[in-house]
Simulated scan of single mutants.
Amino acid sequence: MVFSSGRVPGALVAAGATRGVYRTLRAKPPGGSARWQRKNHAGRTVDLHGGLAVAAGVALATAVTPGLPSRTRAAALLATAAAAACGAYDDQAGSAAERGLRAHLRALAEGRVTSGAVKLLGIGAAGLAAGALIARRPVDVALAGVVVAGSAHLVNLLDVAPGRAAKAVLAAGAPGVLRGGPAGTLAVAPVAAAAAVLADDLRERTMLGDTGAHALGAALGVSIVTANGRTGRALHAAVLLALAAVGDRVSYGDALWTAPGIREVDTWGRLPC
């Protein structure tokens, strides 16, 4: 079952395209290298090429992998592209002064539209549009929108330490890869793309940024929506909403990331600070 319905071709396309785009961007970054460089948690200079590369790899694999119904394929492409575009906007225009869901909602209440609010509204709308391509009843469309947007937001919350978000995508997507049908085929692309940049992420040569984290999360979200009925979607939506509500603890909670077992997995392969 794992090797049916285009999973191997999908994985090869996603990983190959991700590596190809990544190498091309590193060799000749558009607009110059400075535009794509950021300081990470340890003060080291890393680039954002990994995020652009995984977004391209996921989109290409989703577009060409056999075994996907046309509406499901369109939903996954829409969600991935919109999430990547909104993330890219925030990567370039975002301000470190306003971070977190509460800060962006507060700014909206004050009549200010932050780059984070653009992400919230843009990815939320894309999630609903993707849900409308997969489901018919309004409640199912709404649940799909929450799952897609919530998955994108969760992966982005985890992208605060080298390799953490990519490892989370591998862990969350692995059960989906083993699943039959279109949902399993959809899960292959983000998993393979994340694996293709994991080593460079861990070695602090690159980072996913909002572009890559949102694209990977949205793609996983569409896979989850495709795999589940209303009850499963509702359970996933509830969990994702709860995690979004405690976003700072998910991102920076020492009690979580220093817990035995989690600490070893989280820091595996990472450079010493």
Rank of each mutant, 00 (worst) to 15 (best):
I134S: 05
A135G: 06
A135E: 15
R137L: 09
P138D: 08
P138F: 08
P138V: 10
D140A: 15
D140Q: 12
V141C: 09
A142H: 00
A142G: 04
L143T: 01
A144P: 00
G145V: 14
V146Q: 00
V146G: 00
V147G: 11
V148L: 07
V148K: 00
A149C: 14
A149P: 11
G150S: 12
A152V: 04
A152M: 03
H153I: 01
L154Y: 03
L154F: 14
V155N: 07
V155Q: 10
V155D: 03
N156G: 11
L157H: 08
L157K: 02
L158S: 06
A161S: 15
P162Q: 12
P162H: 14
A165T: 04
A166L: 13
L170E: 02
A172D: 03
G173M: 11
G173P: 07
G173C: 10
A174T: 13
A174C: 08
A174P: 09
P175V: 00
V177H: 08
L178A: 15
L178C: 12
R179S: 10
G180E: 13
A183G: 08
G184F: 07
L186Q: 08
A187K: 05
A187P: 02
V188S: 03
A189R: 02
A189K: 03
V191S: 05
A194V: 10
A194L: 11
